[in-house]
Design a protein around this nucleic acid. Sequence first.
DNA 1: GGTATTTCATTAACATGTTAAATAGATTGC
DNA 2: GCAATCTATTTAACATGTTAATGAAATACC
Lengths: 159, 159
Amino acid sequence: MVTGSDPLVGDANTHDDKSGMPRQTRRSLPISLLRARESVMAKFRPMLARHDMNEQQWRVIRILGESGELDASELAERALVLSPSLTRMLKSLKVRKLIALRKDKNDGRRTLISITPTGKDLINEISPESAQLYRDLEKAFGHDEMERLLDMLEAVSKV
Amino acid sequence: MVTGSDPLVGDANTHDDKSGMPRQTRRSLPISLLRARESVMAKFRPMLARHDMNEQQWRVIRILGESGELDASELAERALVLSPSLTRMLKSLKVRKLIALRKDKNDGRRTLISITPTGKDLINEISPESAQLYRDLEKAFGHDEMERLLDMLEAVSKV
DNA sequence: GGTATTTCATTAACATGTTAAATAGATTGC
DNA sequence: GCAATCTATTTAACATGTTAATGAAATACC
């Protein structure tokens, strides 16, 4: 885990953005996005771990709960997981009986993935805890600020 | 790579945020942060790859260029890399002579890491390309919007 | 209809993410 | 001074990230 939040960072060089030098990492968008994500996920990971879930598995399970049966490509894209990672994850999720796999009869290349009742039960276990953590976060950050941030992040994703 | 940006996502369920169900993934902060990051990094990764660099290595090298010699813990925290990952990365960066390692004489537990002239040369090669990509991004997203987004991300990191 | 091309999923190989344990050097308390 | 404790780093083990290659099925083209 990255601990984050180093209050005083008296860097030697605080130059302005001149030609060649790289942007200060503190004002780099990719790094700021990563830092924010780490900070937020640090609040959720311990809860997920108590349910033997990691972030990626939780994303996959949720997407399936939201959208129903999907093929692997669709699921990978929506869950922001790469196909090779998804292939490996599906094995362990299947062993835990959280998902079910079947072949598409109309297109033999496709694997169709759906959530099982056991998987839905797990979602129903985790969701209230997740929602509570999210409410805490929204309370600390501000509801309207949160909405604005989500809008801006959506806009960045489309640039 | 995640392709991202699926323009029309006709989800079956677009319910409001009632008690138990998890927030729609499209409005989840962790997922939105991840999606935005993927979208941005997709623009930078090919350029870094041409210099045989991945994101993590680029972060580590930049931090060292900014801050000078650091011990492993400081470097890991600032570069948002976990200590075990950093340990492995330092080996390959040392083989490429981009960094130099030495033991702290006052505290035998600490490893001090610094950038080499070769490492500085690499930063000077990559920086102009990175800066150009960043300018493109800022132009597309808007300078003021970008500044506001960075401020909000910093605020989220401190919640 | 048969070949070339494209597409979906998986496998391979190596890097990083993540948690826990091990190692070794510093610090504390007596 | 020494045992107990704490701290910085590394190692271990397994999961996911990433790119390239493979295998198999669908589609395009003629």
